[in-house]
Design a protein around this nucleic acid. Structure first.
Lengths: 336, 336
DNA sequence: TTTTAGCACTCATGACAAACGAGTGCTAAT
DNA sequence: ATTAGCACTCGTTTGTCATGAGTGCTAAAA
C-alpha cells in the first residue's frame, strides 16, 4: 500500500492535473499547499509511483500525469477529503409545478452548465404505468390515432391502420369495451390480457376476430423504451483533450446513437442506486476513450426510474461532479 | 453577361472545387473534360472572372475558388446541365405503414448518408391543423391530462390543473360540449373561438365561468411549435472546412439551439414550395459562416406542412443535393 | 538513514532560413 | 485571338539551432 507521503503526492498531482490539463512536474507539486517536501524528494516518490503504475510520463523530460489506476485510487481513497460543499443548496431546487420531462431537461442543462461536461438523463419507461384511459380517433378512412393515458399521467400515441371491414361504430364499441374492461392493467401486460379478455367478450359480438386482434396488436405495441435528455455536448469541446477533430467525431458519433448513450447510463451493479464512477477503459462502450462517466439513479415513489450521468475526460473534476450528481438525484427522488 | 467560354470555365472551376476542396489552377481547368482551351487562355478569363467578382484568390500564387456570387451563378445558370439522375428511383421509396415521425426520421438519416451533409426536417406545426377530438383524463384530484387530436392525426397532450370547484362530471360535460361545438376549428384560433362559444352556451349552465376559462386557457396553450429531426451532424466533420474545432463548435452550438435550426428552414418566400438555395451570407443566421442551405417544403393533402433542409459547406454538391431533396419532398407529398 | 541541493542530460517546442513548387501575369510568337 | 514561354510570387515543407521545463543521479546536509 502507499505511504502517507505518497498519497499526498498522488493527490497533489491529480488535483493539479485536473486544473491545468498539463503534466505536473516535481517543482509544482513541491510548492503546492499541503506538501512540505522538496522537489527532489517528490521526484523520487514520483518515480516510485510510476513504477507502481499510478503515474505516467508522456516523455522523458516532461512531468507526470495520472494513469487510470491513479485516478481510480484518487476517487476511491483520496476524494473523501474533498468535503462536498452543501452551501449552494438552492442549486438543487426544483420547480414542482413543472412537468417531469421539463424538469429533467432543465436539470440536465443546469448540470452541464455547472460542470462544463456532457450530461445525460434517461427517463422512466412508460411501460411501467397502468392503463387509465384509451381513445381511438379516426383520421381518414384507413388511418386512426390511438391515445393511451397511464395512471401516472403519461400519454402514449400511435398511428394505426384500420382494417377494411371495421366501421367506426365498431371501433367505438371496442373502445368502450376496453375502457370498461382493461382499466388498471399494467401497460406491459396489456397486450396479452386485453387480447384474452376481448376474445371472451367478443363471443356475443359479431366482429371478425382476427381483424380486431391485429388492431389491438397495433394499439399496444410500446416500442419507445426510454427517453433521453442530453446537454452540453458542445461544452466538451472546450476541454483541451478534444482539441482534435477526430476525437470530437467519435464522441459525437456516440451522441447520435441513442442506444450507446443508454449503455453508458446502464449501471454496473443494477440494484445499487448510489453514485458510480467508471474511469477510462472501465467503460464498456466504444468511442469514449479517455473519458469517465459518473452515474446515479433516482427514484420516484420508491421505484428506481431513471439515471443521471455526466461524461467528461478522465481528467474530470470528480469531486465536484459527484457532489452535484448526488444533490440532483436526491432532489429528484424527494420530489413530492 | 458572361460569354459562353467564361461560363464553361466558371462551371469547371466550381465543379472541380466541389470535388477537391482546393483552389483550382488554370492547368487543372484546361485539362478538364469539356474544356478545350489552353492554360494561358483560361488564366486570362479567370482574371476577368475574378474582376467581376465570381472568383476569389486566397493568395497570389494559388488557384481560384468560387466566391458566393460564383456559386450563385453556378446554381442559377449552370446547374441545369446537370441532368438529375432519376435512375435510383427506389431510393425515395417510402414505407407507407410507418408513422410519419419515423418516416421523417428515416428520410433524414438517409439523406444525410447519401450527401454526407447535415439534414434537418421540420415537421408540421400542429397549430396549423383543425380540431378533431378532445379528451380530458383525470389523473389525481387536482391534475388531469388533456389530449387533443388534430385532423392531420397529430396528438397534443397537456397536463392541466383542475380548479377546486370543478367536479369530474362537469369536466365530462365540458368535453362533450367542446367535442360537439368546436370540431373543425383551426387549432390556432381555438383559444379565442372556443372561449366565445362556450361563453354563449354556458348561459344555460350554472358553472363558474372564470374557472372554466382558466381551464380552457390551459387546454389550448400550444407552445410546442415544431418538431425537428436532425441527422448527420458528425458527417460534417468529414468536410475539410470543419477541420478546425472552433468552426465545429459554432456549428454544434447552432444544432443545440432548436430555434436557430428552425430559422434555417424558414423559407425566404413563404408560399413557394419548390427547392430554395441560400448561399453563405444569404443565410440570415449566425454561426453558419461558409455554409449553404438547401430547403424544400412538402405537403400532406395539399397543405404545406413541413420542410426538408440540407446544410453543408458553401462548397457543397448543389446538383446532387437539389435532386435528392426534390425526390424526397415529392415522395413525401405523394404519400397517400 | 533520510532528505535535499546541485548538475548534467533529455527532449518537446518555437524560431528562423533555405529549398521547393504550384500557380500567376505578362510578353512575344503563332 | 490564342498560346507558349518565362520570370516572379508566396505559401508550404524541411532542416537546424536555441530554449527551457523537467528529470535522474550523486554527493552533501540533517
Amino acid at each position: 500500500m502507499l505511504t502517507e507521503r505518497q498519497k499526498k503526492i498522488l493527490w497533489a498531482i491529480v488535483d493539479e492535473y485536473i486544473i491545468s490539463a498539463e503534466p505536473v512536474g516535481s517543482r509544482t507539486v513541491s510548492k503546492k499547499k499541503g506538501v512540505g517536501f522538496s522537489a527532489a524528494t517528490v521526484r523520487n516518490e514520483m518515480a516510485d509511483l510510476e513504477e507502481m503504475g499510478f503515474l505516467e510520463q508522456p516523455h522523458t523530460s516532461a512531468g507526470r500525469i495520472p494513469s487510470e489506476k491513479g485516478y481510480r485510487f484518487y476517487v476511491d481513497h483520496l476524494l473523501h477529503s474533498y468535503v462536498p460543499k452543501e452551501e449552494d443548496h438552492d442549486v438543487f431546487l426544483l420547480d414542482q409545478a413543472e412537468k417531469l420531462e421539463q424538469e429533467m431537461q432543465r436539470i440536465s442543462a443546469r448540470l452541464s452548465q455547472l460542470t462544463n461536461y456532457m450530461t445525460m438523463i434517461a427517463s422512466p419507461k412508460l411501460v411501467e404505468g397502468h392503463l387509465k384511459h384509451l381513445s381511438i380517433v379516426p383520421i381518414t378512412e384507413q388511418i386512426a390515432v390511438s391515445v393511451i393515458v397511464s395512471d401516472k399521467g403519461q400519454v402514449e400515441q400511435h398511428q394505426i391502420v384500420i382494417p377494411e371491414m371495421i366501421s367506426s361504430s365498431m371501433i367505438e364499441e371496442l373502445v368502450n369495451l376496453l375502457n370498461y374492461r382493461a382499466i388498471g392493467i399494467p401497460l406491459s401486460q396489456l397486450r396479452k390480457q386485453a387480447l384474452r379478455q376481448i376474445n371472451d367478450d367478443l363471443h356475443h359480438l359479431l366482429y371478425p376476430k382476427p381483424l380486431i386482434s391485429t388492431m389491438l396488436e397495433q394499439l399496444f405495441m410500446f416500442e419507445q423504451p426510454e427517453q433521453l435528455f442530453l446537454s452540453g455536448t458542445t461544452r466538451m469541446l472546450e476541454q483541451p483533450e478534444f482539441r482534435d477533430v477526430d476525437k470530437v467525431r467519435s464522441l459525437l458519433d456516440l451522441v447520435e446513437a441513442n442506444e450507446q448513450v443508454l449503455q453508458l447510463l446502464e449501471p454496473i451493479e443494477p440494484m445499487f442506486t448510489g453514485v458510480q464512477v467508471r474511469i477510462g477503459s472501465e467503460i464498456a462502450v466504444e468511442g469514449v476513450e479517455g473519458c469517465s462517466v459518473i452515474t446515479a439513479s433516482f427514484e420516484l415513489e420508491n421505484d428506481p426510474v431513471g439515471t443521471i450521468g455526466v461524461l467528461g475526460p478522465t481528467r474530470m473534476d470528480y469531486g465536484k461532479v459527484i457532489s452535484l450528481i448526488e444533490g440532483f438525484t436526491k432532489s429528484l427522488s424527494n420530489r413530492n
